[in-house]
């Protein structure tokens, strides 16, 4: 039987952490790209487009992330599309992330006074120019803090990928637990690693929030 020293446990967990980080980054990039697209759709004020966005948000915020993962992983392969755990995890986390980000960004754009749009109109700027030169520069400043804060939710969301068999931090944690029978030690270490990943982001988001409130 193989003996696991503390060093072995930690080394394996740290090795798995890079997959958690990679998955988080992929999900965040995917999610914010889709959210950007959805925000643009919503800003057109076309009633069909805004309705589509609303249903999208309702669907993905109203169902568990775990169900979305199961549907992407088991469901798609059942329908004949071969998909890996990695692909299913990225796909479902993209849905999840974008549904929340589009709502966060909506709030940020809505906080800008309507007069900004009207003034731009009067100055003869078209829709895209207004967005590019007036709205986005201000909205991005408001949106940074909550977006960084939400990235913590994305990292925590990746833990669910362990359930569909993607080998990341939580999965390696359960595997090590099965091998060493030291659940207390293993899961404490897993929790500490997640904390070290997430806390700096939470902290940074709080700092950004304070900074923004002062400048306003």
């Amino acid at each position: 039987m193989v003996e696991f020293t503390n060093y072995d446990i930690l080394r394996n967990l740290l090795f798995a952490t890079q997959w958690t980080i990679l998955l988080s980054i992929a999900a965040f990039i995917g999610g914010s790209s889709v959210a950007l697209l959805l925000t643009a759709m919503r800003l057109t004020r076309n009633s069909v487009m805004t309705k589509v966005v609303r249903i999208y948000v309702e669907l993905f915020q109203g169902t568990p992330l775990l169900m979305q993962m199961f549907l992407c992983f088991f469901g798609l392969s059942m329908l004949g599309y071969e998909i890996s755990a990695w692909g299913a995890a990225i796909l479902s986390l993209t849905f999840f992330t974008s549904a929340f980000l589009v709502e966060i960004w909506r709030g940020c754009i809505d906080t800008l006074p309507k007069g900004q749009w009207e003034a731009s109109r009067c100055l003869g700027l078209n829709f895209l120019q207004t967005l590019r030169y007036i709205i986005l520069p201000q909205a991005i400043r408001v949106a940074t803090a909550p977006t960084v804060g939400f990235s913590v939710q994305v990292i925590k969301g990746t833990a669910l990928a362990s359930i569909i068999g993607f080998v990341e931090l939580t999965k390696v944690g359960t595997m090590l637990n099965n091998a060493t029978f030291e659940p207390f030690k293993v899961f404490t270490l897993v929790a500490i690693i997640y904390f070290l990943l997430c806390y700096p982001l939470s902290w940074y988001s709080k700092i950004l929030e304070k900074k923004f409130n002062v400048s306003r």
């Binding site: 913590v152 990292i155 925590k156 969301g157 990746t158 833990a159 669910l160 362990s162 359930i163 939580t170 944690g173 359960t174 637990n177 659940p183 207390f184 899961f187 404490t188 897993v190 929790a191 997640y194 904390f195 997430c198 806390y199 939470s202």
Partner: peptide, 11 residues
């Protein structure tokens, strides 16, 4: 707030 729910549950 900075650890996943599933890890809390397993712990």
């Amino acid at each position: 707030r900075n650890t996943p729910f599933i890890v809390q549950l397993f712990f």
